[in-house]
Design a protein around this nucleic acid. Structure first.
Length: 95
DNA sequence: GACATGACCGCAC
DNA sequence: AGTGCGGCCATGT
């Protein structure tokens, strides 16, 4: 997760698979929910499938996530981000 | 061991 | 486009 570049996003399922956790998307979610508030990990770049934001707008964390994503230049439409444009895969990291 | 829950995923209707 | 259902992995009671 720390390797996700700024302005890019990934889904829980992808992150789980890429981390060698198989299909443990739920486990990723539960883990993120337990992150300390002062973590510097880019947790806001982890979205649900299809670029959907699973954290509801209005909640502290939900607003925080939207703010951070927008700050990185992403556009949020109807609680979702354009994965086609901002999706990230490790292969792209190698150039 | 059984049962319920979670910042989930994919498919079918 | 919205809803329902089963599957997934780990944790807590």
């Amino acid at each position: 997760m720390a390797q996700i570049p700024e302005g890019k996003v990934i889904s829980y399922g992808e992150l789980a698979a890429l981390s060698g956790l198989g299909r443990a998307a739920r486990w990723v979610g539960r883990t993120l929910s337990q992150l300390p508030q002062d973590t510097r990990l880019p947790w806001h770049r982890v979205l649900a499938a299809g670029g959907r934001l699973s954290l509801a707008a209005g909640t502290p964390s939900g607003e925080e996530q939207r703010a951070r994503l927008r700050a990185e230049g992403l556009t949020i439409r109807n609680d979702r981000v354009d994965m086609r444009r901002h999706g990230w895969r490790p292969m792209e990291a190698n150039g």
